[in-house]
Simulated assay, not measured.
Amino acid sequence: MLKSKMTSTGVALMLVSLLLLGGCKSIRVTPMSVRMAESEMKRSPEGWMLDFSDRLKWNYCHGLVSQSFLDVYDRYGDEKFFKYVKQYADTMIYENGEIIGYKPHEFNIDRINTGKILFRLYNKTKDEKYKKALDLQRSQLKEHPRTQEGGFWHKKVYPCQMWLDGLYMGAPFYAQYGKEFNEPEVFPDVVNQFMLIRKHLYDPATGLFRHAWDECRQQAWADSITGQSAHVWGRAMGWYAMALVDALDFIPAETPRRDSMVIIFRELVQAVEKVQDPATGLWYQVLDQGTREGNYLESSCSAMFTYAILKGVRMGYLDASHRQIALKSYDGIIKNFIRENADGTISITRGCAVAGLGGKPYRSGTFEYYISEPVRDDDPKAVGPFIMASLEMEDFKK
């Protein structure tokens, strides 16, 4: 009788009492990484629906979130996460390895990122269509246009340009392919991509990196002398930070200049920590403009930096003292960006929907441009890195 009369408030109070009495060990708390992944699966019941899609896409956002789901699967072993990603891949890939909507000779480096999910699918299932699709994406990089020093263009439609974003889209896949399929000549080429970014996009005045560089100095957004864009976009630097810690997983220790990648990562983290908001532990949409009117604390770059720093400490690239920076930022994400929804899901708020340079309509790269792009909840560029950062937190706590 007592159980049937117990109200929801009574249940809540009972749980609080158990916690206060030290009974929390008997209460299973769902990890935040799992909660966000399950929430995103509820919002997008099939993988092709990720990124608010209404049609099939082989899109870097789908790859980013799917990659984080596979990380959750690896950590906790729940098959539903693996099956979700596999269903997306099976929807997109024909038996001959061709991928719906993917055209290698468009030379869009964004499209490479999604290929990372195929390594784990192939290793687990041994289905040859995944290997064929991996080889197809690898073939793009064999012909992809480059700068005079060997840096991959961001896209064929953006000639002469390297973007920070592009290092995350291409380099970890490229390095993992080299490791998985015995192409050792890949590794110096991967390292060179990071060296070129350091050479051409680094701002010595701040230690930060500008969003993009135009080798040909043709774009209106490019400085006529340096070729750099004008500002430091938070998410672009977040992409670069994640690219460094992820690509290093696959590059052998003896590879020339690999140690320089670690140094670059350390310098990047030191510069990023200097512009961290002291009150919340978060980072701004435009990193080099701080509290300038219109600038705002943004969730995707905050999650990316949190993930990269936590992983950097775990892998030994950073001193353990840096972990406190990431713990503060993770706490700031939970307090400022994570929302509990009425249906039991959670959302991550305040993510910049998109930002770029050039194109039609033309994106100027000014401060006013970056703060004018739409802001939305549950943007995949925030969802995926938040799951990845949460997994790092969960491993650390364990």
Score class of each variant (00 low, 15 high):
K116R: 14
L134W: 06
D78I: 02
D110H: 10
G101H: 01
R111V: 09
T125S: 13
H105I: 07
I117V: 15
G115S: 06
Y88S: 02
W163V: 03
Q137V: 04
V85D: 05
E98S: 04
Q87G: 08
G151C: 04
I109L: 12
K86H: 12
G178Q: 09
D127W: 06
A89W: 04
H105G: 06
D127T: 05
A175H: 14
V85Y: 10
Y84C: 03
Y158F: 13
G178E: 09
Q176S: 12
F152M: 14
R146M: 06
I109N: 07
H105R: 15
L141V: 06
F181Q: 05
H144C: 07
A133Q: 00
L121P: 08
A133I: 00
M169G: 05
V157G: 05
G151W: 03
K124Q: 12
P104K: 08
E79I: 08
N182H: 15
M169L: 03
W153P: 05
I100L: 04
P159R: 01
M92N: 00
G150I: 10
E180V: 15
Q161H: 12
L134I: 15
L118T: 08
G101D: 00
L121R: 05
E185M: 05
G166Y: 10
C160F: 15
L141D: 03
K80C: 01
F81P: 08
L121F: 11
K156R: 15
I117E: 09
R120G: 07
N96P: 00
H144M: 10
A175N: 14
A175F: 15
E98N: 03
A175Q: 14
Y94L: 07
D135S: 13
R111Q: 15
I109V: 13
Q148I: 14
E149V: 05
E95S: 12
E143A: 07
K80W: 00
I93F: 00
M162Y: 04
P104E: 11
I99Y: 01
K179G: 11
P159A: 01
Y130W: 11
G115L: 03
E106V: 10
L164G: 02
E180S: 13
P184D: 07
F82Q: 05
F119Y: 09
R146G: 02
R111T: 15
A133K: 01
K132Y: 06
K124Y: 11
L121S: 07
T125E: 13
K142E: 13
T91W: 01
F82Y: 13
N113W: 14
A133N: 00
H144G: 05
Y177P: 09
D135K: 13
R120S: 10
A175T: 15
K142N: 08
E98Q: 01
L118Y: 12
Y94T: 03
E143Y: 10
A133P: 02
N182R: 14
L136S: 00
A133H: 01
Y122A: 07
N108Q: 10
K132S: 02
E106R: 14
K179Q: 14
H154M: 06
E106Y: 11
L167H: 11
K179P: 14
F173I: 08
R138V: 08
Y102V: 00
N182E: 14
Q137N: 03
I99K: 00
Y158C: 05
Y130Q: 11
Y102A: 00
W163Q: 02
Q137F: 03
